[in-house]
Amino acid sequence: MDILSIVGVIVALAAILGGNILEGGHTESLVQLTAFVIVMGGTIGAILLQVQMNVFMRSMRMGLWVFVPPKFGSAAAIQRIVEWSNTARKEGLLGLEAIAEAEKDQFSSKGLQLLVDGSEPEVIRKILEVEVDVKEHHDTQAAKVYEGMGGYSPTIGIIGAVMGLIHVMNNLADPSKLGPGIAVAFVATIYGVGMANLFFLPIASKLKAIIHQQTQYREMVVEGIISIAEGENPRNIETKLQGYLH
């Protein structure tokens, strides 16, 4: 659980709602279903037009990473790689076959299997780097969905504001309808700008940071497996890989 994300959401909402109350405003005045429907519906519709469905669905699943990020365990992974290296030196590369089958991380398992199959170091590097690049590309495309929503929602908020003002202009003869129309106009703008800067854009940035960490983790695994293939000393491998921890 990422406590910082939870605290960030609470602090942001508390600051805005608290500031509204300090100015003498009422929280109920910020709750406008019509404005919410316009902004959220328009934003989601625009992003669905921009991306493919599989990218959109992946972005929704990845959104949970903001609060429950995947665990990489780089230090533990280094120790496992050193153990693999010791096994390879004692039993040969075929001694890694059972370890490859038992390894839970599919990426590491694939690398170990390539070692067991006797693939050349450069061949292993090319195969694994392709998977690293493709995985990073797909995840980044999913993160950009939130970036796109952050770009669209303020504009959709302005559309909602204009719609509210049009409603006001059409009802100038009926003062009872002026208040709701003006409320929708201003609240739609708040929703559009607020959701972009408090949620969509920060989520996109955090997901990109997590993707970067994930890519570094996989690059570390690749470097470790290549070092084993080249027959490097386990102690040297450990020293080299510890550079990824900083």
Rank of each mutant, 00 (worst) to 15 (best):
F36S: 15
F36M: 15
I38P: 04
V39E: 05
V39D: 11
G42S: 08
T43W: 03
I44P: 03
G45V: 11
A46E: 04
I47F: 10
I47P: 03
L48M: 13
L48V: 14
L49G: 11
L49E: 06
L49I: 15
V51Q: 09
Q52W: 02
Q52M: 01
Q52F: 01
Q52N: 15
N54K: 14
N54E: 09
M57E: 03
S59E: 02
M62E: 08
G63K: 06
G63C: 09
L64E: 07
L64Y: 11
W65F: 14
W65L: 08
V68C: 11
V68K: 11
P70R: 03
K71Q: 14
K71L: 14
F72C: 05
F72L: 15
G73Q: 15
S74Y: 07
S74L: 14
A76N: 08
A77E: 13
I78Q: 01
R80K: 15
I81N: 01
I81S: 05
E83Q: 15
E83D: 10
W84M: 10
S85A: 15
S85K: 04
N86R: 14
N86Q: 13
N86I: 05
N86M: 14
T87Q: 13
T87W: 06
A88E: 12
R89Q: 12
R89C: 04
K90H: 13
E91F: 13
E91H: 12
G92I: 07
G92T: 10
L94T: 05
L94F: 15
G95Y: 09
G95Q: 07
E97K: 07
A98D: 12
A98F: 01
A98Q: 13
I99A: 12
I99F: 03
A100N: 09
A100T: 00
A100M: 06
E101Q: 14
A102C: 03
A102D: 05
E103S: 04
E103H: 06
K104R: 07
K104Q: 15
D105N: 12
Q106W: 00
F107W: 07
F107E: 06
S109E: 01
K110G: 03
K110C: 03
K110F: 06
G111E: 04
L112Y: 04
Q113R: 11
L114P: 00
V116N: 00
G118F: 10
S119R: 09
E120N: 11
E120L: 11
E120P: 03
P121Q: 08
E122G: 03
V123T: 15
I124H: 10
I124Y: 06
